[in-house]
Design a protein around this nucleic acid. Structure first.
Lengths: 190, 190
DNA sequence: GGGTTTCTTGAGCGATCACTCAAGTATATA
DNA sequence: TATATACTTGAGTGATCGCTCAAGAAACCC
């Protein structure tokens, strides 16, 4: 009896993620989404319920992909190798809609309003930090960095540096590659 | 013949700066400004012309204060002392409406839209970077850091780190003081 | 093919957006 | 005090906001 939707829900979420990522929460209107996703208002609300719900789905997708790609990188290059490669990788990725971190942009935009999405972004940032801390711990276990460092503290500093790097990478007057190199070089001195 | 305005224009700009700083460009409505600045629409537009014009004034004020306070700090503590003190100082300043940098927030929000205010924010960030580079140069001249570093490169990395720190300082799950210490400690190893 | 169920469509909802302007009010000079 | 000149007020502009819903179209099961 039922009829299948004509769209690919997962693909729409990914597309919405890129739009929100670039233009932000307030900067993306329903009209924008309807035009880009090729959905009329009725279909949009049948599929996702609300703009905020779709944003939350997009944010979750973004965060999951972030952790997953970091894990994949660690399998290739080892924990320290992954941590050293990530800064360069993130600013060189030309397929990204924008260099800055979507979690950071969301948090910066909505935190002052106590918006639910800001809390979600923070939660996802904690997951990412935990992922970094795991890698630092494994790097210590492997003897790649000195054991007298707190992995959580290293992870927090590293995450903070990455946020700064990725925001700086949006500036066309900045040589972000140099900053990325310097961040990676610092990891060798641990 | 004329009649003086009943408001203090400079104070209103400072107040608007704090509101924009906290809530962003799209997140601040004319209604918000009229309520907080206690101006009816007519007075608002007579005084400032448009929301964007006031935002530009607020941004300029923010940037000027930033450079000025860095210069003052350098007179007290010397170039390297100022650079080392700034991370801690910026996250401990309890009078600030928010920890994150207003230039960074503006740039992140509006750059994808090619908004004039994003270009202005970038220009002000260049001024700030130049200020940092001057301090690094002076620290080299004073023999406080090794001469084999490019001051502009150091300034860019430093500014990037500060942006990350200040964004991280908004997270209540993060010990920003530790990150600030680590940034300052790195300067001693130059 | 008939009947059922879902998806698609798009006009339009009330609220809010940035902004305007004519009328009223207060203060300066003469 | 009279007049000229601003400043203040707030109702109201058209546009856009996120969102609703009734009607029509399409795909499934029997």
């Amino acid at each position: 009896m039922p009829r299948k939707p004509s769209y690919d829900r997962d693909a729409l979420i990914a597309q919405a993620r890129d739009i929100f990522w670039r233009h932000g929460w307030a900067g993306t209107s329903l009209k924008d989404l309807e035009r880009e996703l090729k959905l009329k208002p009725g279909s949009f609300y049948a599929a996702f319920g609300s703009k905020d719900t779709l944003y939350a789905l997009a944010l979750e997708r973004y965060a999951q992909d972030g952790v997953a790609s970091m894990r994949t990188l660690a399998e290739e290059l080892g924990p320290l190798g992954a941590l050293k490669a990530q800064p360069r990788r993130v600013i060189e990725a030309s397929e990204l809609p924008t260099k800055a971190c979507m979690l950071a942009k969301t948090f910066a935009e909505l935190q002052a309003k106590d918006h639910d999405l800001a809390a979600q972004a923070r939660t996802h940032m904690v997951s990412m930090k935990t992922c970094f801390a795991d890698l630092f711990r494994r790097a210590q276990d492997a003897g790649e960095i000195a054991p007298d460092h707190d992995p959580d503290r290293l992870a927090l500093r590293y995450q903070s540096d990455l946020l700064g790097l990725r925001l700086s990478a949006e500036r066309d007057d900045v040589n972000a590659a140099e900053i990325a190199e310097d961040i990676a070089a610092d990891l060798d001195r641990l």
